[in-house]
Amino acid sequence: MEQLAKITKETNKKLVLLIRNLEKSIGVFGDYPPVLQDLNFVRDSYRKTVPHPLLFILPDYAISRLAKFAPDFWAWKSGLFRFKTTELTRDRAIANTLNTDTNIDRLPTPEQQERIDLLHSLLMEYNPTGEIPSPENHRNCCNILNELGKAYLSQHKPIQAREYLEKACEITKKFPDYSLEIEVINQLGKSYQQQRQFESANSYHQQALDIAKEQKNRPAVANSLFYLGNVSLNMREFHQAQDYYQQTLEIEIEFGDRYSSASTYYQLGKVAEELGELEEAKANYLQDLVITTEFNDEHGLGISLHNLACFYQTTQDEDLLREVTKILGTTVEELKETIINSEE
């Protein structure tokens, strides 16, 4: 209101209030957004307080929310405009989302949200709200939905993640890409695991494992076994978890997937520690550390060192410190400083 009073009006021009980024306030999921409740409630007062056209610029998924939760606004004069994205912009968005090697779990929160926004924009390109994606867009659409599911899982929002993953799962039935289907089903399992619905999680991971075995896709078998191991560990079925992880490790060694084996050694260490097999746990934790150091994986190294610090507090094993310093090529004093940094 203060800004309106200061604007100089020109007789041959009309003032229009542009409202952008409302989609960030009304969200994608859930019940009646408070901002729309308020907008609906005071709608008619705008005729006096802001006697100018209001132009809301929204992506299609937000327009659907507006139509559902602010029907009075929707009843105003409105139009739907489809803007064609330039090929260069679309290619950049794909490069920063679908074709990136950076795991979204390792991104700072603002960059995570930026990737999610890009994925939503891409989804509108390949699957506009209310339309059925064309056959030539099935693969891209499925990849985007899967990445959105993974992104929401990284933010521990399993219900939102599942909305996209279930759509992705439907689309995988329409074109033959069993690797993608297996990944989507495993992500669905992870969504239930985050909610501690372990039986449902197990069911999805077992389904993915069955498809992987049927397709003789050994790396996919390893992934599914790993996820089954995680669920068994959560359920404190330690011997079952150990068996799943051991099968996973055998396949990773068979295919020379040394990088992935670091996570498996780490999980085997956790299981052994729970079973009181401390020497076995130590050996697995150290093997994990060797591999994360070998691949210069700073994120993994931070997790490994923090875990080793906790393990040392429990065991007071001085040999452990000497082994770690040998792997890192550092002194005990430098190691302690590194562990403090890893916790930060």
Rank of each mutant, 00 (worst) to 15 (best):
E2H: 12
E2L: 11
K6R: 12
K14A: 07
R20L: 14
S25G: 02
S25Y: 09
I26A: 02
G27R: 03
V35M: 05
L39R: 03
L39M: 14
T49C: 06
P51N: 05
P51G: 07
P59R: 02
Y61Q: 04
I63F: 05
F69D: 01
A70W: 13
P71H: 04
A75K: 13
F81S: 03
F83P: 06
T86F: 07
E87K: 14
R90C: 15
N96Y: 08
D101I: 08
D105Q: 09
D105N: 14
P108E: 05
E114R: 14
E114T: 13
D117T: 10
D117P: 02
H120L: 13
L122N: 04
M124I: 11
E125H: 12
P128W: 09
T129Q: 11
T129L: 11
G130Q: 06
P135K: 12
R139M: 09
C141P: 05
E147P: 02
E147N: 13
A151V: 06
P158D: 04
Q160I: 09
Y164M: 03
Y164A: 04
A168K: 00
E170R: 11
T172N: 05
P176T: 09
Q187S: 15
L188F: 04
Y192H: 15
R196E: 14
E199D: 13
L209H: 05
L209M: 10
L209V: 08
A212D: 00
K213W: 07
A220P: 00
L225A: 08
M235V: 06
R236K: 15
E237L: 12
L249T: 04
E250Q: 12
D257T: 07
A262T: 00
Q267V: 00
G269F: 04
G269A: 02
K270G: 00
K270A: 09
E273S: 11
E274W: 03
E274F: 12
E277V: 03
N284F: 05
N284Q: 02
F295R: 07
G302I: 01
L305E: 01
C310S: 14
C310L: 15
D319L: 07
L320N: 03
E323H: 13
L328I: 08
E334H: 06
K336S: 12
E343N: 08
E344R: 15
E344Y: 12
